[in-house]
Design a protein around this nucleic acid. Sequence first.
DNA 1: ACGAAAAAATAGGACTGTCAGATTTCCGGG
DNA 2: CCCGGAAATCTGACAGTCCTATTTTTTCGT
Lengths: 369, 369
Amino acid sequence: MAAPTLRTLARELGLSRTTVSDALCGSHRVKAETAARVRAAAKAAGYERNPLTGAVMSQLRRSRGQQFRGVLAAVEIVEAVHSPLAQRYNDALMSGVMARAGELGFNVERFVVGPQGVRLNRLDTILHTRGIQGLILLPASGFPDLSALSWHRYTAVYADYFIDHPPLHCVCSDHYRSMIALLRELHARGYRRPGLFMEISLSERLQFRWEGAFLALQKYLPEITEVPTLRSRNINFETFAPWFRKHDPDVVIGHFPDAMDWMSACGAKLPSTHGFVCLNRLRTSGNCACVDLQTAQLGARSTELVVGQLLHNELGVPTQPSLTTIPARLIEGPTLRPRGAKPGRGDAKPGKVRAGATSRHSTSEGGEV
Amino acid sequence: MAAPTLRTLARELGLSRTTVSDALCGSHRVKAETAARVRAAAKAAGYERNPLTGAVMSQLRRSRGQQFRGVLAAVEIVEAVHSPLAQRYNDALMSGVMARAGELGFNVERFVVGPQGVRLNRLDTILHTRGIQGLILLPASGFPDLSALSWHRYTAVYADYFIDHPPLHCVCSDHYRSMIALLRELHARGYRRPGLFMEISLSERLQFRWEGAFLALQKYLPEITEVPTLRSRNINFETFAPWFRKHDPDVVIGHFPDAMDWMSACGAKLPSTHGFVCLNRLRTSGNCACVDLQTAQLGARSTELVVGQLLHNELGVPTQPSLTTIPARLIEGPTLRPRGAKPGRGDAKPGKVRAGATSRHSTSEGGEV
DNA sequence: ACGAAAAAATAGGACTGTCAGATTTCCGGG
DNA sequence: CCCGGAAATCTGACAGTCCTATTTTTTCGT
């Protein structure tokens, strides 16, 4: 006897194929009693749905007609005040989200949760009544808890490193790899005493990824003089200057562009005697070399993930959350000497990558930082 | 305007959809003149046939709706000999790939590229004639170059950290975060002198992620005594014993289970005086605590990514490659004392996590390692 | 030159599972 | 008894293929 199909099964049961399909997918549109009956019959008949056909049919049915496919929610969780930087970061993310969502046929609506916006259970209601199923959660300070939402109705991505309530897929910049690539590039330009300053709160938030990569590569790059990291709760001229004067790094890496002034005040000339790289482009005003975290790309990829799951009807919390990362890019600026230029001081040799295993890495990842 | 389909095109041309389909497939059943006319119209209308739908329909028609499945290729690139460990790793990946592929309606075929298998351009031909479009590339040693394949025909994922020829999406274990979580867990169990040994080649391959996380957390965990990492081209008893005797770590972390013997030979008792964690479960024989890299999950996620792109007809090299990671898990074993147990030596205090920011991390990521 | 048979070209039907929208069934209140 | 609304169920349309049916064209013997 031939393998049973949806239609065969439906005829046997005296139901329509749709009802059978819905019943087997656990749709709420079917009466529980009927669904049970269908499942029993399917099991008895040895029916197995063809998942590939199902996927093809699904996208077929959806793509029919006009372009508009639905609405995504961009959810911002604001506990207290929102720093201007966080706001700029979220705006950059959103530009990527909107662009890709538009390409994929979705509209995006922004919601703010917290004291200044709606409460969580109110959001749940709004999303439900509006029929919104796809959520993009913008980075929140601390450890946001969204477990109160009815997750069986939504599919979501958190645009930051980690969320545990509930454990969702995350999308974030690849800080670790970016630091590795940055140091390799600086090394190739002849810098031999890279120094890193870092506020402890920032470092903790990223699980020390900037610093971990920095510490590891200090050990592995050839001819490096290890400059200890300046680690502090509060980085300002008073904490920076003694560290800079004592260890005299030939290139300084850190989050605050103010460091350029501090370096100058200590007698450094940029870029002739010393270099500087800011770790976040959004903090700069375009007057120094910096790392572009590719924020818009992150937003775009987040959107792709959510839409992909939406189109396959994958709602709820994922069984195994994953983290998707995108490498950052080095933006050139007047605070770094280019490749091949002569170092400004005697203790470093002209920038040429040494042969060996590391140089192969350097070649393969040279374009990005 | 909606995307043109076979039927729209046929109506425009005043032909039946069958004729159009045959014409586009270059069937001899259609008059050459008609075929040319159809191809011109298809190009003008921007018609693109959905190959996956085509495959589904074809098999559906032939096999009377039996269980049709698409096909994915799992490609193994073997330069010379394949170490037993690499083989076991790939097999574990494959089990995850096969399982998820089955759920999604795909069969998987394994191909071996290299001296022992087919050449790259031969693979290209095979995949083309078989109509295979989805590729899962298993980890290869070194820096594999697959740019010779006709990438406009395929969508692929590399199941390792990085590939640049061509730059594809990658899926890999999150070694960095796993080390962070592992150290937090060891700290919570009262260990205060963690020591890491690492072969340089291994470390380089992973871009020092194990070590980077280790170095960073040594700085940030409270009450830690920093034990320098044992770093060597070749780790054996002769290199291990002096390091172990000199620094006396209270828990040793590394890839080789042999270290347990070396520790015993130096007078250590596991787990009463010292602990040990192997960094790769596949290297152990189940007699020690170890880190499970979640290999099957990685295979599953890789498959999801490839299938997702296939269903959306997204072929070719991605515009922006991304890296997807999954955290590893700590597997308990007789070489670690449990949480709350008393340390075996006087220099460490009972295992209680200190209050503060780090403890929140520890709580939120405690389950995984 | 004509008609029948052969050949070539094109058209039709059936097949899968899904989803939006239509239709039917059910139930309580007026 | 009927109306309104909700719940449950059904209908139709959709993709590309391939086998078969139908139409059109060509061939060829008389």
